[in-house]
Amino acid sequence: MELLLDPPFWAWFVLAGILLILELMTGTFYLLWPAAAAGLTGLATRAPFTPSGAGEWLLFAVLTVVLTLAARAMGLKRRPSPDDTRPFNRADSRVGQHARAIAAFEAGRGRVRLGDTDWQARSPVPVAAGDDVVITDVDGSVLVVAPAGTQTQ
């Protein structure tokens, strides 16, 4: 219990390490600033005339708030990533490409090989194993295909 009420300097570094590991696992930026505050609190406890006990926890809380607000003011917060505009990464770039059915489609669903990747696919018409198909649309990660002979280009 004394470890929680008046933690030694190394306990602050352990807390900082744990928070950094959790931050790396989540990648949210939420735990980065408390981790930095814990490290700074650990350094501060080695200086002369520093608070101990509850004063250390108060210093940790104040540093966490200050670092978080400073980071937000500087724009160091998680921003939504922009849409992927690379031409070969867009789903509609696959429309018109030829693929081969891996197995016969059952109930309009099956798998096709496009390049070196196997994709889920669906087709309104029957597709047999080994048939050459053309991608007509993309629905999420599912390719909508039609037999190559029925597709006009």
Rank of each mutant, 00 (worst) to 15 (best):
D83A: 15
Q120G: 00
D118R: 07
V125N: 08
R100Y: 09
S93V: 02
P82N: 09
V125Y: 05
R79I: 07
Q120R: 14
V125H: 11
F88W: 12
F105S: 05
R79T: 13
A121C: 11
R94G: 01
G110A: 09
G96V: 08
A99N: 08
R94D: 01
G110F: 08
R94V: 01
T117F: 02
V127H: 02
I102C: 03
R79H: 13
P87R: 06
A103V: 04
R109A: 12
S93G: 15
E106F: 02
Q120D: 14
E106H: 13
D116W: 07
A107C: 00
Q120Y: 04
D131E: 14
R109L: 09
P82C: 07
G108I: 11
R122A: 10
S123H: 07
A128Y: 00
G115R: 10
R78T: 07
A121H: 08
T117M: 09
D131T: 07
A129Y: 06
A107T: 09
S93D: 09
R78N: 08
D83I: 14
P82W: 05
P124D: 14
V127I: 15
T117N: 06
F105M: 09
I102A: 13
F88Q: 10
G130A: 08
D131R: 02
R86T: 10
H98L: 14
R111S: 11
Q120V: 05
V125G: 03
H98Y: 07
S93E: 13
D83H: 12
T117K: 07
V112W: 06
W119Y: 11
D83V: 14
A101S: 06
A104S: 14
V127M: 04
W119H: 10
R86G: 03
G115T: 09
P87N: 04
D131V: 04
I102E: 15
R86P: 02
D116T: 10
G115A: 08
A99I: 05
G115N: 12
R78P: 01
A101F: 03
A103E: 15
G130F: 05
R79Q: 15
D131Y: 03
R111A: 10
A91R: 14
L114V: 11
G130W: 03
V127T: 04
P124H: 04
G115S: 09
G96T: 05
G110V: 10
P87L: 15
V112P: 04
R122C: 11
R90C: 00
R79W: 09
R100H: 12
A91Y: 00
I102Y: 05
P80L: 11
D118K: 02
V127C: 04
A91Q: 13
N89P: 03
R79V: 12
R90S: 01
W119G: 08
P124Q: 10
R90G: 01
D92Q: 11
R90F: 00
S81L: 14
G130C: 05
D118F: 00
R78V: 08
G96E: 08
A91P: 02
Q120C: 01
P87V: 12
S93L: 01
A107W: 02
P126R: 03
R113Y: 02
A128T: 10
R79L: 13
G108W: 12
S123N: 06
F88C: 00
V127K: 03
E106R: 15
L114Y: 11
D92C: 00
A101L: 06
A107H: 15
S93W: 00
D83R: 15
R90V: 06
